[in-house]
Every structure is written in C-alpha cells, then in structure tokens.
Simulated scan of single mutants.
Amino acid sequence: MVREQYITTTGDDGVPDTIPEYLYTIGIYGWRKRCLYLFILILLVILVINLALTIWIVRVMWFNTEGMGLLQVHPDGVRLEGESEFLFPLYAQEIDSREDSELLVDSTENVSLNARNDNGDVTGRLSVGPKKVQGDVQQLVINSNSDKMLFQADGKEVVVGTNKLRITGPEGAIFQHSVQTPLIRGEMSKDLRLDAPTRSLSMDAPGGVHIKALSGRLSATSNMDVLLHSNDGLLVLDAEMLRLPNLRLGTAGTGGAQGLYEVCVCPNSGKLFLSKAAFTSTCSNSQQC
C-alpha cells in the first residue's frame, strides 16, 4: 500500500511551497496473513514428515556406503547375504554361492529356470515341482568337476560316460529295443539273469559272444527250443562232464527201424554225432570221427 502526503512550507519569497513526501507502507493484513502463516506451517509439517520418513527408510533398509543392508554392490556384481525372498521373476546372468556354503533355492510351489534368446523366446526350461522334475531342452549334458562328460541325452541317443553303469533296482533294467554294450556283468555275490518273458533273446557280435561264470553255473532255460548254431565253425562243449539226462532210451530188440538213435562222442576231438541204434553200440562202426 502506497500513501502520498503533501507538506506545506514557506519559501524565501513568502509563497508557500508544497513538497510531496512518499511514505511506503507494505504489509499483509487480515485473512491473507492468516492463510500465509497456515501455508508455511503446513510446509513445515510436510518437511518434518518427509525427513522422518527418510530417516526411517534408511534405518529399515539399512542403507550404507556399500549397498543396502545385506545387499552389497561391487564392481563385479551384487552380493546378497542371508535369506532373501523374491516376489517377482529374477533376471541374472550368473548366480553363485559363497565358497563355504551351499546355494539353496526354496519355493512353496515349484522352482522354474528359463533360458531365453535375444528375442525373448524360451530355449530351455527346468522345472522342479512337488511331484516331478521336468526339463525341456534340446540336449542335456551332465559333467563332473573335472569337465568329464557323465551323461548326455538328446532326441537321438543317450550316452553314459562313466566307466560303469550300475542298476540297483530289484526288477533290474527293462529295454524295449536292442542294447549295444561291450560288457554285461552282474553284481558281486549276485546272479546275472537275462530274461525275455514273451519273446526271444538274441545276442549277436561279429567277433564272438563270450559268456563266463567264474564262480557259479551257467543256466539257459527256454519253454521251447534252445538252438546253438555256428555257420562257419565248430560248436565246442569243453567240460569234465557232459550230461544229457532226458534223451530217449530204446528197448531191447528194437533198432533203427523205429527211428531211434544213440549219441556218440569221438574220443580224439570230443565231437558229438548221432548213430542208428541197434542191439549193440554202433558208435565204433561210424565214419563220423
């Protein structure tokens, strides 16, 4: 508010002069003054509340010069101590545990690990659930600490890279198709059994098939015929005693006319052959040896 006043004075000539005098009076009065004070008070309260909230957040989140509480930020990554709970997906290039502790990933439902390409498409998935573990990947490879391949599986084949594949189940191993292996060995003090309940059992090898029972017996049982066949070689039965307990026996007075034969053995080579049965043995008269 500006107010102008005039002061009358008398000069040398006796004529009164009027000298203007400016008085500046500035101020806010009335309701404007009260509103200004109220606004300042509100700003002061908000400032105090913000300061208190900032101090509370700093104390609760444990902000420090290295990071935030148990979360420490380093030039080579982020280090998190203790247990942590993630409510949303976690994106990371590498997750490592401390040298003196293990890495534990826990969930009330399931744990899913996804690998994505540059377009964001899932190229590999591993899901650990309460009932099953499921993996969707083109190739599964398991290596040892020395970078030796232990297990590899893809859409064409499964490779076990260990020196020995041990199956401890009471039912053994069931193969729906063929199996290719250089050696099949039973566990110590236990029998090795190859069984085909409804089909035939065939073992083929271009260099020969060797069956050994070092401390027991070898038994081959079939509901029908057991055929031992060699195309270009001999069939050798090398044993101290050879027993054929269920051969048909002839009766006195009968001969080869009834189609009965006797089994003969060559004394020099051990060859087995059949000779027509008669009243006496015909093995010595045969030309098979």
Rank of each mutant, 00 (worst) to 15 (best):
M203C: 00
V137N: 02
S107C: 09
F151T: 00
P170I: 14
M149E: 13
T123K: 12
S101I: 04
V209Q: 00
D106T: 03
I174Q: 10
R125T: 02
H177I: 01
V78M: 03
L103R: 02
Q176V: 05
S146K: 13
G135L: 15
Q93S: 15
E83T: 07
A153Y: 05
G208M: 02
A173G: 04
L103E: 00
S101C: 09
S146D: 15
L214I: 13
L103A: 03
G124Q: 03
V122W: 04
A115Q: 11
K156D: 15
V128S: 10
G129H: 10
Y91L: 06
Q72Y: 11
V73Y: 10
E94G: 12
S107K: 07
G135C: 03
G135I: 15
V159Q: 12
K212G: 03
R79D: 07
S202F: 01
V159P: 05
R98V: 10
N163I: 03
N117C: 04
V73I: 12
K156A: 11
S144W: 02
T198F: 05
L150E: 00
E94C: 15
G124P: 01
S178E: 14
S97Y: 04
S189F: 10
L126D: 00
G155M: 11
T162K: 05
E94N: 15
A213Y: 03
Q152V: 02
F151R: 06
S189E: 09
T162N: 03
Q180I: 06
F175C: 04
F86H: 11
G169M: 12
S127W: 13
P75A: 09
I167G: 02
R199Y: 05
G155D: 15
N119R: 11
R193E: 13
L71Y: 12
L192R: 01
L150G: 01
H210A: 07
L104S: 09
L165G: 04
V73L: 11
